[in-house]
């Protein structure tokens, strides 16, 4: 298994496409950072336009923590594409290249091969997130410094104390990793149904886009299925940036407002991962290789 994984990782990281994602992330984050460095004031003014009518916010809103939040908010919508690029290609790409049949005539169990491939895509996903953390969080902290994290939620404002922020990012990144692994699992699962990689990549993105629309639209019919859509739960990382207050409306440092939401979302995502990967293994074990 370990050897399989090594081989799969070797293949993943020998491909130029893999580094394209890292380059894309670097560029995207760089653009956001540059934009906020040059015109950050405009951005915060815009975001807070409604709020600033009644309140004056004093302090360094545009700090590294805030920048990272903006980056995550913007980027986690696009990262699924970069993950699909690799995960949805894991099987279909090999089928397309013709290497799948050679691979499967080797004295290795199909389950081991498919699991190694999935774990390789998970590792790729995690590395991508670590890279986002390095570029989006650590580099932003370095460039913009740190301070309290000022966030506008849909119905209230949260100011997280500087000393209370970092662990929340750790949690948020872990959660985002789970969400992105779900994307990887979906892409991986879909990659069984095609012998070219474009199909599953587009299919993965389409599923995510459609489900996100369903998750966002406030229509009673959709509201029924919303709790079961993984896209509804993919943004639960934001829950890490909301804390409880006591009766005097004082922030309770180190608390999370809705820990149950995080647990529920994580469970839904895990169930999706297990279903997608389970189905993938099951299908792959009996798949006739005709490519």
């Amino acid at each position: 298994m370990w050897e399989h994984l090594q081989i799969e990782l070797y293949k993943v990281f020998k491909r130029p496409r893999t580094y394209l994602s890292f380059a894309a992330i670097t560029a995207l984050i760089g653009v956001i950072q540059l934009g906020l460095m040059v015109d950050g004031k405009e951005y915060t003014d815009f975001v807070m336009a409604d709020f600033a009518g009644s309140f004056s916010v004093d302090g360094k809103i545009l700090n590294g923590y805030f920048i990272c939040y903006v980056i995550l908010q913007l980027l986690l919508v696009h990262v699924p594409l970069l993950i699909a690029l690799i995960a949805a290609d894991m099987i279909s790409g090999e089928a397309n290249m013709g290497t799948l049949r050679l691979l499967l005539t080797k004295p290795q169990s199909r389950t081991a091969i498919v699991m190694a491939k999935f774990i390789a895509s998970v590792i790729y996903t995690l590395l991508l997130l670590i890279w986002i953390a390095i570029m989006g969080l650590f580099l932003s902290m370095l460039i913009f410094g740190t301070d309290d994290l000022f966030l506008m939620k849909s119905s209230y404002v949260v100011i997280v104390k500087e000393s209370d922020v970092f662990w929340r990012y750790a949690g948020a990144f872990c959660f985002a990793a789970l969400a992105m692994v779900t994307v990887a699992a979906l892409g991986f699962f879909l990659s069984f149904f095609a012998e070219n990689s474009i199909g599953p990549i587009v299919a993965t993105m389409s599923v995510i886009i459609v489900c996100t629309i369903l998750s966002t639209m406030n229509i009673p019919l959709f509201n029924l299925i919303k709790p079961y859509l993984f896209t509804t739960h993919m943004i639960t990382w934001k829950e890490f940036f909301d804390f409880k207050v006591n009766d005097a409306n004082e922030a309770i440092i180190g608390s999370i407002q809705y820990p149950d939401k995080i647990i529920r979302s994580a469970t839904v995502l895990l169930v999706h991962i297990v279903l997608f990967v389970g189905a993938a293994v099951w299908l792959f074990r009996k798949k006739d290789i005709l490519s």
Partner: peptide, 28 residues
């Protein structure tokens, strides 16, 4: 608004100069 307790420093000079300064952090 959910905000932590922040430290401030105030400066006053007669007759009407007043300044409230955060000791780090963000205040609303």
């Amino acid at each position: 608004i959910k905000a932590p307790i922040g430290r401030v420093k105030v400066f006053y000079k007669s007759p009407n100069k007043f300044k409230l300064q955060r000791d780090g952090g963000i205040s609303v």
